[in-house]
Amino acid sequence: MIKWKSRFNNIKGWLYLLPAILFLGFFMVYPLIDVFVYSFEEGYNSASQTYFGTGTYNYSYVLHDPYFLQALKNTFLLVVITVPLSTGIALLISVGLNSIKPLRNLLQTVYFLPYVTNTLAVGLVFMILFKKTAYSDGLVNLLIQWFGGESVDFIDGPYWAKMFVLCLYTIWVVMPFKILILTSALASVNQDYYKAARVDGTSKFRTFMRITLPMISPMLFYLVITGFIGAFKAYSDAVALFGTNLNAAGMNTIVGYVYDMLYGDSGGYPSYASAAAIILFAIVLTITCINLLISRKNVHY
């Protein structure tokens, strides 16, 4: 009787989950398996649904394609630079916001504004700031010249300049969300901990390292994981700054490469696109697993 009842409860649980599982299965798991299969089918043609044979040729092609290698390098640079920097700066700003009283609400709104602004609109603003045209060198270059430096073409110029703008732009775009999360995490730390620490004569720095950071570590960890994933999937930011022909600009990302392989001017190669997508999937999975392992020791729930 009891056994039957618990089994019924079990079935009921699964029934509740069914819609979500169906949905996820149909739109996530099935396509993923499909892409996985495509990536091993040589010369797959989506119109005629035919292919020559199976093997690892697609991977070999993609991994030897200079455009892909460029995209891989760009993506890694973007991840390595923007994730720590944006999280760190967001933490600094949040701590600052949390420790001031007057104007806090106003400043919080100001810092959150970029979040509700369209990516392409922000891209436009960055163009005005950085782009060299026939008429003007852009605002930033004016400043550089003001201080006696050489003007640089940030949009069509040397690689480091373009990378700099892309990173700056990415940090700028992801910052508001991180600040929002971190300010609320900081505000939710019980003030009694700080009172106890003060009475014990704990220095500001030690209080931050030994109390504040562990207290907000779950949120920080969440931001780092989603930050990594988001940066690995970056694409629209590069488009907003450098236009759709990213390969020519040498600023493509992995997702951009996948898109180009499917629909770009040189596109129509779903097999290559699938192989690149699977490689990206593997990278993100690996990094996330490493993150989770590290977090076991350092995140306190």
Binding site: N190, D192, A196, V199, G201, P214
Partner: peptide
Amino acid sequence: EHRGIGLVFQNYALYPH
């Protein structure tokens, strides 16, 4: 911190980590 006091809170305020 210079008064030489010990303080105990209602919710204990022990550092959970």
